[in-house]
């Protein structure tokens, strides 16, 4: 298990390095110049040229790459010319927001998805199953930004139950210092997390239904019932644990979805996270921010997958044994 984990870690670092390299070159080789705000008037060429020199973009690409790697080794992500501040500072502001949103969405996704999946499996073929399945399919088919706009219109503009975007009340809570402001933050989190989580939950429910159906038809479940155990215990204790295995894989895969979804949701709900930061940086060709965001996002996604792999091994001892038997072969689950 330890050797397998080390191999997985090395592979993860290699993936992050590869993504950094690809992003570094792709963003610099893309058309367009790092010059001025997107959507406003472009900078005069002389001002633009001086800026290029100031930031070293006039140097050969390989020299820039070498310098970037050296800086990265020391934990430096460079200076953003669009934000006029260190990239690390900008990302440090944004990461907690994206992370909170992603975690909240993950919570909605899996809590709701698992509950609905189990409900559907238990009532397979009946009205409840069909109704939930169809609604889930409908939600799953919706573009996430569109769903966000609908929720915003209904719950923020018409009903006024929730705020229309933002992360907190800028008058009362300029900083998160009080319990009141923490609640205010959670209140602002509801709509974006719900939007992102609902779309995920619709997919999770379908997986969970299938997994649960497969498990509850197996012999040991029948045996459990024959022993006279209560149905709730049979389902939630005996069947669910095995039915969770595919869902753990899904958990690993949910990270990239959440981060890409966050890009759109952060724009719709004016949520100041990494997605919004990266999108603005791409439009401005703000190379250091784009590459910095790629480094962090990749690291988090790779970590998410690693955690999923480890969890998989923990939940299913057979996998541990197989991996140990094969000398720790560490393919992705």
């Amino acid at each position: 298990m330890a050797a397998w984990l080390v191999r997985r870690l090395v592979a993860s670092i290699a993936i992050v390095f590869a993504v950094v390299t690809i992003t570094f070159f792709v963003v610099r080789l893309a058309h367009g110049t790092p010059c001025g705000p997107a959507g406003e008037r472009p900078l005069p060429p002389d001002v633009c040229e001086r800026q290029r020199v100031q930031f070293g973009y006039d140097q050969p690409l390989l020299v820039q790459y070498g310098k970037y790697l050296v800086a990265l080794r020391h934990g430096e992500l460079g200076e953003s010319f669009g934000l006029h501040r260190p990239v690390a500072d900008a990302l440090a502001d944004a990461i907690p927001n994206t992370f909170t949103l992603a975690l909240a969405a993950l919570l909605v996704d899996f809590a709701l998805g698992l509950a609905l999946g189990i409900y559907q499996a238990v009532r397979a073929g009946r009205f409840g199953d069909v109704a939930v399945g169809n609604v889930a399919l409908l939600v799953n088919s919706m573009p996430v930004f569109w769903l966000g706009l609908v929720l915003l219109l209904v719950f923020a503009q018409w009903l006024r139950w929730f705020p229309a975007g933002g992360i907190h009340n800028p008058i009362l809570c300029p900083r998160l210092l009080s319990p009141y402001c923490l609640l205010d933050f959670l209140w602002h989190l509801v709509l974006p997390a719900l939007t992102l989580g609902l779309v995920g939950a619709a997919g999770t429910a379908r997986y969970q239904r299938a997994a649960m159906l497969e498990v509850i038809r197996q012999e040991y479940v029948r045996t459990a019932r024959a022993k006279g155990l209560r149905e709730r215990r049979v389902l939630l204790v005996h069947a669910l644990r095995n039915a969770l295995l595919p869902i753990i894989t899904l958990f690993g895969l949910a990270f990239p979805f959440l981060f890409t979804g966050a890009v759109l949701i952060e724009t719709v709900f004016a949520w100041p996270g990494m997605g919004r930061l990266a999108v603005n940086a791409i439009f401005q060709r703000d190379y250091p921010v784009v590459t910095g965001a790629a480094v962090l996002t990749t690291t988090m996604v790779v970590l998410g997958n690693l955690i999923a792999d480890v969890l998989y091994a923990v939940v299913d001892p057979r996998i541990r044994v197989q991996r140990g038997g094969r000398g720790g072969g560490g393919g992705s689950v």
């Binding site: 934000l83 900008a90 944004a94 927001n97 933002g166 800028p170 300029p174 900083r175 996270g273 930061l277």
Partner: peptide
Amino acid sequence: VAWKAGES
């Protein structure tokens, strides 16, 4: 008074 990046 204050500037919260990305917010206000």
